[in-house]
Amino acid sequence: MNELLLVVTIAGERVALFADAVESVVELDTLIPVPRAAPHVAGLSALRSRVLTVIDCMRSLELGATDCSDGIREAAVVELDGHHYALIVDAVEDVVEALSDLSPVRAAMGAGWERVSTGMVETEAGPLLVVDVAGLIAGVEAKAA
């Protein structure tokens, strides 16, 4: 496969995002709440004169909420359909190379993980679940559509 993957931790689980989908990794220090936004939208933030919609990955996966009250949060910045999003993660770990093609997940996962999973891949850091950024951005509302 030889694709690069960004290894992140979401809800205490090490997972991977395709690195070509990630524009940058940032630390967010300011979140502006958005009234009537979907529950997984943590708010808005600014990065280099552009507005980012901030997605709480834990809420998107229906695993609780990320505590953003302590200030700085790590996030992966992605673009989807011309809009920029910051995906709040617990931690950003490393960039690794995929050593295999995607394979189906052969274990039971929670509904949120199943919704965003694109498969498993082998890496030098061990097997990792690859997560679809569009699924994280869509949130739980995606399963109703």
Results as ranks from 00 to 15, higher is better:
N2Q: 09
D56P: 00
P127S: 13
G119P: 12
E122C: 11
V7K: 07
V92S: 09
S117D: 10
M120I: 06
V95M: 08
K143S: 11
L28T: 08
A142C: 04
A46K: 09
V7S: 10
E79A: 15
V77A: 05
S60A: 11
M58E: 09
G71L: 02
L47H: 12
A75E: 03
A42T: 04
L31C: 13
G119S: 09
A125K: 15
G126A: 13
S100A: 07
D90P: 09
R73M: 11
H84D: 05
T30V: 15
E13M: 11
R14K: 11
F18T: 04
A42I: 05
D20A: 12
E122T: 15
G71E: 04
E122L: 15
M58S: 10
M1R: 02
E122S: 15
R106G: 14
T9W: 04
V26G: 03
E79F: 02
I137A: 12
V34N: 12
T9C: 08
A98L: 02
L47G: 00
A42L: 07
T66F: 00
A138T: 01
H40V: 05
E79G: 10
Y85G: 01
E62F: 00
G12T: 01
A46E: 09
A19H: 10
V54P: 04
E74S: 12
A21V: 06
V92K: 06
D132N: 15
L31A: 13
A107F: 00
V89A: 09
A125N: 14
E141D: 15
V78L: 11
E27Y: 05
V96A: 08
L44A: 07
N2Y: 00
D101L: 05
R50E: 07
V51F: 02
E79K: 12
H83C: 03
S100M: 06
I88N: 09
V54H: 01
V54C: 02
T9I: 07
S117K: 07
G110L: 00
M58D: 01
I10W: 07
P39W: 06
A98H: 04
V140W: 10
A125Y: 10
D56A: 00
P39G: 11
A86W: 00
V78G: 14
I10G: 12
S69E: 09
V54Y: 01
L99V: 00
T66R: 08
A91Y: 04
S69C: 02
I137Y: 10
A37G: 14
M1P: 01
V41Y: 07
A145G: 12
A107K: 07
L28E: 07
G110K: 03
S100T: 14
L99S: 05
V54Q: 02
V89P: 10
I55R: 04
L87D: 08
V133A: 14
T66V: 08
R115A: 11
D81T: 03
R48K: 08
V105L: 08
A11E: 08
E23H: 11
G43F: 01
E13P: 07
A138F: 02
L61D: 07
T118M: 13
T66H: 06
P104V: 03
V130G: 12
R14N: 10
L102Y: 08
L63W: 00
S45Y: 04
E3G: 02
Y85S: 01
E27G: 13
V34Q: 11
L44V: 03
C57A: 09
L47W: 08
D67R: 05
A107I: 03
L128A: 12
V131L: 13
E79I: 06
Y85I: 00
A38R: 14
P127L: 06
